[in-house]
Design a protein around this nucleic acid. Structure first.
Length: 488
RNA sequence: GGCGCUAUCGUCAAGUGGUUAAGACACCGCCCUUUCACGGCGGGUUCGUGGGUUCAAAUCCCGCUAGCGUCACCA
């Protein structure tokens, strides 16, 4: 059987949209699941759109997502070069061949704005002015050095049908096809031409790309036929959509928030979470498994799990999945992965980073939530009397003062400031007081954190803060509470 | 507008003529609980619409509607 070869062919824009990433992923997964090759090819035939270092950017992003090309600009391979601008001469040769065979023609029209923008799109855009120029006219134009493009000569009648794995047979009337440009006046091929030549030359067996190419596929198919080349298998993927606040759904874009792989990484999602989530956006394994390593994805992937309808990117589910990954990590792994999101920590907290991670990893959905969550450890929020009043735990201001005062005494006597000791002392205090656990814990935790919601309870915070800071915060709070009681 | 693609809970989705129409996220409730989480239990909500075909339709066919795509010397 022929070797399975797929490719990812982005244009170098310096931006990796989630939709593109998913296309690359599926192409990669399919190739790897079939023990085939995955090729990275850069489609940079538009000189105006050139972005410096974009190729490196794409390669870095794929590497971060663990999508590893077998062949590519910097990966080598038997079909090099893998950058289209470096293959220019090649396309020219094939274009000329088409002209000779009568399947293409030279067009000397320069910017026919009027025709191209007319509402009467009978000819699909271009009015085919040069389609039937006489040899003499062509010769003369050439002699004058007039610039020209080479256009594909579409059949005027009949229809073209191609098979798509997801959509079945798709038929489009040839009359719908315009005489598209194959070779631009600067000698560069257009996407629609280079793509066909390269896919054939690079022996691509399966073309996996977005639905936006369905309509242009018949033109490509015709090209394959003109050359007498074997057709690859087509798989057109449904787009990734986004849901705006007003509920409208459209192709995922900036107005939906982060839309690139890198945006997501910067927000603090693990690369493997992004790949895992994106893999499931439009593909299902036919089992209830949702957490997949790249190895499992490769093992389980199959084309018939692909869905042909658009999928909406759901940040909720991404968050959930991210949380699942965090919970599965050891404290050390979490601490390491989250490192740059901790920000500037003081000496005490730096030393307790791993412990802090154990508290954080079940409470955070992405790393970027960390700073806000741990800020109170570095800096005590302003006093807020209201926080000490809690009905459920039966505490008010007076009660809080009554609870905090003895607690300070007890804690002052603690030499060995460890979780175990602190837990023992506080538990003993609760038992002796005859009060409910919550009644004691609530005011202490508020006094220590100044926050209603904290990562961890009283004992954890005492330990995190350390002896000195804890005692200082408690007595400050006590004073503030007493003042507040007096004032009321 | 022409052409093309798509249509099952709010979202991801299973489902391929006979099912109580899975599961997950989100949401709501309850339990656990020293906050918040974690964990456990339970709940509601879905086949766009109108016609067929059939004993039987979410599944097959046709129309309609809606969404998306495409109509470049962009990819």
């Amino acid at each position: 059987m022929k070797k399975i070869r797929t490719r990812f062919a982005p244009s170098p824009t310096g931006y990796m949209h989630i939709g593109n990433l998913r296309t690359a992923l599926y192409a990669y997964l399919f190739a790897k699941s079939q023990h085939g090759d995955f090729i990275l090819r850069i489609e940079d035939t538009d000189r105006a759109r050139y972005v410096p270092d974009a190729v490196e950017f794409i390669e870095r992003t794929l590497a971060a997502a663990k999508i590893i090309p077998d062949e590519g600009p910097h990966h080598g391979g038997n079909f090099a070069p893998y950058v289209q601008s470096e293959r220019m001469e090649l396309y020219k040769k094939y274009a000329e061949e088409l002209v000779e065979k009568g399947y293409a023609y030279r067009c000397f029209c320069v910017n026919h704005e009027e025709e191209n923008n007319s509402d009467d799109k009978k000819f699909g855009g271009y009015n085919r002015h040069c389609r039937n120029l006489s040899d003499a006219e062509i010769k003369e134009n050439l002699a004058q050095g007039k610039p020209y493009v080479i256009r594909q000569k579409m059949p005027l009648t009949g229809e073209t049908t191609f098979f798509d794995v997801l959509h079945g047979n798709i038929t489009i009337a040839n009359s719908e096809l315009e005489d598209q440009v194959l070779l631009k006046s600067d000698g560069m091929p257009t996407y629609n031409f280079a793509n066909v030549i390269d896919d054939h030359l690079m022996e691509i067996s399966h073309i996996i790309r977005g639905t936006e190419f369905i309509t242009s596929t018949p033109k490509h198919v015709l090209l394959y036929q003109f050359f007498g080349w074997e057709l690859p298998t087509f798989i057109h993927l449904a787009p990734v959509m986004g849901k705006a606040e007003d509920g409208t759904i459209s192709k995922l874009s900036k107005r939906h928030g982060a839309t690139s792989f890198n945006d997501l990484v910067e927000m603090g999602y693990l690369p493997e979470v992004i790949t895992n989530y994106v893999a499931l956006l439009g593909w299902n394994p036919k089992t209830n498994q949702e957490i997949f390593s790249m190895e499992e994805l490769i093992e389980k992937f199959s084309l018939d799990g692909l869905s042909k309808s658009p999928a909406v990117f759901d940040y909720n589910k991404l968050d959930w999945m991210s949380g699942e990954y965090f919970k599965a990590m050891t404290d050390e792994e979490f601490a390491r992965a989250a490192d740059k999101f901790f920000g500037e920590l003081n000496e005490n907290l730096s030393a307790k980073k791993v412990y802090l991670s154990s508290l954080l990893k079940t409470r955070v959905t992405k790393f970027s939530e960390i700073p806000a969550m741990i800020k109170f450890l570095m800096e005590m929020p302003p006093f807020d009397a209201e926080l000490f009043i809690n009905k459920r735990n039966k505490v008010n201001l007076e009660k809080s003062a009554e609870i905090i005062e003895p607690a300070i005494k007890i804690l002052e006597g603690v030499e060995n400031w460890t979780l175990e000791t602190l837990n023992e002392k506080i538990s003993a205090y609760i038992e002796n007081s005859g009060l409910k656990t919550g009644t004691i814990m609530w005011p202490l935790r508020i006094a220590l954190s100044g926050q209603k919601v904290t990562p961890g309870g009283t004992v954890e915070i005492l330990y995190l803060l350390g002896r000195e800071t804890s005692l200082k915060r408690l007595s400050t709070a006590l004073k503030d509470i007493q003042a507040a009681v007096k004032a009321s």
